[in-house]
Simulated scan of single mutants.
Amino acid sequence: MDNVIINIAEKSDIKEILEIYSYYVLNSPATFEIDIPDINEFSLQIEKIQNKYPYLTAKINGKTAGYAYAAPLRTRKAYDYSCETTIYLHHKYLNKSIGTKLYTSLFEYIKQMNILNIYACITYANTESVLFHKKFGFQEAAHFNNCGYKHNTWHDILWLEKIIGSHKTPPAPFINFNDLKL
């Protein structure tokens, strides 16, 4: 889709982002969240992520069609060179290249931050997401069996990883997303 606009998420986007996420909470094991978070809790999660990492939206004709973000893999300082990524698309906009545009933009920011390792945690049954990530060069790093129970079924998860830089000693300093010269 040529009319997709990728932007940094704003407070005015949160309601539509939550609507997209809510669909997956209720209808899919793509997230292990069981209950839809309230708007205030969800807003705080986004704000916390945006203190350090990019959180992007994809819009078509002003309507949010998807979102993607980077977040800490772990909270200790030594993990600054690694991040976890998440992507959700409105269920009506799957397989329309929106995810590709979101991830391409997200990875550009991640590289500018001097992050070297990108990880994604995916429910094993979500083969579309696994294939999507592998298209971007992710490889399986770990497989955990029966670690989540949702919709009366046990689910495995996969951790996928993508190395995007050289692990030099010392590494280039981590740059907070908010400190990038955009």
Rank of each mutant, 00 (worst) to 15 (best):
A141M: 14
I115H: 07
E128G: 10
N178S: 08
C121S: 11
Y69N: 00
L116N: 10
L102N: 05
K52L: 12
F107Y: 12
C121P: 02
V25K: 02
Y79Q: 01
I110C: 04
N27H: 09
D80K: 14
N178G: 04
A142N: 10
L182P: 02
N95A: 13
D156L: 10
A71T: 08
A30M: 05
G66V: 06
K11L: 11
H133I: 00
Q45S: 15
I49A: 04
L18G: 03
Y81M: 06
P170F: 11
T127M: 10
T75N: 12
H155P: 01
K52I: 11
I20A: 02
K135G: 02
P37F: 13
A141Q: 09
Y69P: 00
E84T: 03
I17N: 01
A78D: 03
D13C: 03
D38S: 06
N114C: 09
K162P: 01
N27T: 04
G148K: 07
S43D: 08
Y21T: 00
V130R: 00
T153P: 10
F138R: 07
K59F: 07
S82A: 08
D38R: 09
C121F: 07
N51T: 07
I163Q: 08
S12Q: 12
I175S: 05
K77Y: 13
I46E: 00
C83T: 03
R74N: 10
I49R: 04
N145Y: 14
P170H: 09
N61S: 14
S22I: 02
F138H: 01
L94P: 02
N7E: 12
K168D: 13
